[in-house]
Every structure is written in structure tokens, then in C-alpha cells.
């Protein structure tokens, strides 16, 4: 999903510790998708409670968010609100892909095929229950969350532009298109990870991209970057056939901030181009949010995870002990930036 700038710009690898004391506006949907698609059993089935409800996202939130807080990271989750109208096609297309994957998964699982895991991942979807559960758990943990008026990534970017947060946390780089000065990837999957379906361990580190550096490296403006993304394909348009990041870069450099000239040259256009571009430049965002890290409520977390969702009480006790300690530390240590 989203724009892959990785082919054009090398992100900077950092240590998680460098994000200590940083506020990270996390694209909640992006992160939930990630948890739902990677936290799975061997056969590809997601984690589930006794009643069959999916719990992969809850496992991701309690364990991985605690890891972040322990490193001094201050996460704020930003959920999607109402998608822009021109996203309808993308949403429909994705639903079809997921449905096809779900059918393949059922078949592969019935046949005991190793392909099952792959299809299971592709069939990941988020429903209202998953969102409600995620918000409930975050609330008990004392982790702030916000619901954006429109796209979560746009609101998260706005928060970084305003200085309420230091980074957008997301696996794709769309936040740069929304003008976020900094994006960090991999924060919820940092550490030693097994590659899916392979017996290889890799050391995953957070990766940072800065808008200013991206623009100066590519020698283009933010508007050109948006044009480039639209040519390759964004969440709102499929992209031009056979135009990859490199070709798109050539085109936007040749016709700076002049998409009509580019459309002329390639003999194709992008539906809703103006609307999409305007959306990246001026998305619907709000100032009405409060970022406040609260105190975790261990009893409520236990009742929710162990009582309602069949988590192991021993494991939850352990993580809660870490969470309570980490949350109280986070609030106490000041950083020098307050005095710079």
C-alpha cells in the first residue's frame, strides 16, 4: 500500500533508542494491518480467543507497544476517519483482492498447503470490532489515540508539522506527501524477526526518511513529489501503466509542476488528478486533539485480555509489570530539547 520511495531514496537506519523521548504519531490502521497480517500461527490462522474473535492486533498492541514505551518512545495512535470520496475505488478493489485471497486461503488450508500463510496475510482486513478493541486496549494502557477527520496519515503528518509529534510512524511513506517533515518505519517490528515462510532471521531496525532530504536528494519540490507519487500510484489512484518510480522521477523533472505536460507526453491521464493532489496538499485535519499519556490500569487490561480474549494471565502479568514501570519513567525524565 502507499508509495514506495525506497527505490529512489535510501532511508537512514537508526537505533530504537534514538527515538527515546520522541513523540510518534502512529498511523493506527497501517499498524493494525501489520499486526493482523504478521502475528499469525504456523498455518496462517490469526490468533483468536475462545469464541473465535481475532486477537492478533491486541497481542501486537500489548507486547509491541510496551516494547516501544520501554525504550522511552511516546506513541500516539491516529485512526482513520472518513476516507475521501475518490478512495472508494481503491477500497473496493482492495476488498476484492482480499476476498479472492480469503478463498485461496480456505482452499490452501483445507489442502494443508504451505501457501496458506501467504493467502491468509493477503486476506487481512480491519473491521469495526477490531478498531473498537484496539481503542479500548490503548485506553486501558494509558496510550493516547485520536480519530482523524479523514485519513489518519494526514492527521499524523499535520501533528508533526505543528510540532505536537516528532515523527509519523508508518510502514509507507505517504506521510511525506502530506508534508510530514519526518517519517519512521519499522518501529513496531524492530528487533530480530523471522522472515515469513523462511527460516532466516533478520535484524530489523527503524528507518527514517526526512522530507527535506528526500526533496534535496531527488532535486524536486514537494508538489513534484506528489506528482511523482500519483504517476506511480497512490492510495487514491492505480498509477500509470509501466511508469515506475524512476521513470516518474524523470518525467517530473522534465516538466516541473506541470502535470498536463506529463499527461501529454505519456498520452494518458489520471482520474481525479487535481482532487488527489489538492488532498495531499490540504487534507482535512483537525486541531482538536489532546495528547496525554495516562496511567495503565492493570486490572482492566487483565480483565479485557484474559477474561474476554483468552490471553495467558502469566504472560499478561509479566508485560503489565514492564508497562507500568515504563509508563511512569516516560513521564518523569525530561529531555534537553525543552531548553534548546
Amino acid at each position: 500500500m502507499g508509495v514506495d520511495l525506497g527505490d529512489l531514496v535510501e532511508p537512514r537506519e537508526i537505533e530504537l533508542k534514538e527515538l527515546s523521548n520522541s513523540t510518534i504519531a502512529i498511523d493506527a490502521f497501517n499498524t493494525l494491518y501489520q499486526f493482523l497480517s504478521i502475528i499469525r500461527q504456523q498455518d496462517g490462522a490469526p490468533l483468536a480467543d475462545d469464541r473465535g474473535n481475532v486477537t492478533s492486533h491486541l497481542s501486537g498492541i500489548i507486547y509491541r507497544v510496551t516494547n516501544l514505551v520501554e525504550e522511552g518512545v511516546k506513541p500516539v495512535f491516529v485512526f482513520d476517519g472518513k476516507p475521501p470520496s475518490f478512495k472508494a475505488e481503491t477500497i473496493k478493489a482492495r476488498a476484492e483482492v482480499r476476498e479472492a485471497a480469503r478463498q485461496m486461503y480456505e482452499a490452501a488450508r483445507a489442502a494443508g498447503s504451505a501457501e496458506a500463510y501467504k493467502y491468509a496475510q493477503a486476506s487481512t482486513s480491519i473491521n469495526q470490532q477490531i478498531i473498537a478493541d484496539a481503542k479500548e486496549l490503548l485506553g486501558y494502557m494509558g496510550i493516547p489515540f485520536i480519530t482523524a477527520p479523514s485519513e489518519g496519515e494526514a492527521e499524523a503528518s499535520y501533528m508533526v508539522i505543528k510540532g505536537s509529534a516528532d515523527y509519523v510512524g508508518s510502514q509507507d511513506y505517504d506521510a511525506l506527501l502530506f508534508g510530514s517533515p519526518r517519517v519512521v518505519r519499522n518501529i513496531t517490528i524492530t528487533g530480530k524477526r523471522k522472515l515469513p515462510r523462511k527460516n532466516i532471521m533478520v535484524d530489523v531496525k527503524p528507518e527514517v526518511l526526512e522530507l527535506k532530504e528526500v526533496l534535496s536528494t531527488l532535486d524536486i519540490t514537494r508538489e513534484q513529489l506528489i506528482d511523482l507519487a500519483i504517476l506511480v500510484g497512490t492510495d487514491y489512484n492505480p498509477g500509470i501503466y509501466k511508469v515506475g518510480p524512476k521513470t516518474a522521477l524523470k518525467l517530473v523533472r522534465k516538466h516541473p509542476e506541470n502535470m498536463p505536460a506529463i499527461f501529454d507526453e505519456i498520452g494518458q491521464t489520471v482520474e481525479n488528478y487535481e482532487a488527489i493532489k489538492q488532498f495531499f496538499l490540504h487534507p482535512d485535519v483537525t486541531d482538536k486533539y489532546e495528547i496525554k499519556w495516562g496511567k495503565p490500569e492493570p486490572e482492566k487490561i487483565k480483565r479485557f485480555l484474559c477474561g474476554e480474549h483468552s490471553f495467558s494471565p502469566e504472560r499478561v502479568d509479566k508485560v503489565l509489570e514492564r508497562l507500568v514501570k515504563a509508563m511512569s519513567e516516560t513521564k518523569k525524565q525530561k529531555t534537553l530539547s525543552a531548553w534548546f
Partner: peptide
């Protein structure tokens, strides 16, 4: 130099 957590320099 400032430490990674921005607490000491």
C-alpha cells in the same frame, strides 16, 4: 554530542 535519548550532552 548529545546522547540518543536527548537527555545528556
Amino acid at each position: 554530542a548529545v546522547d540518543p535519548a536527548n537527555v545528556a550532552m
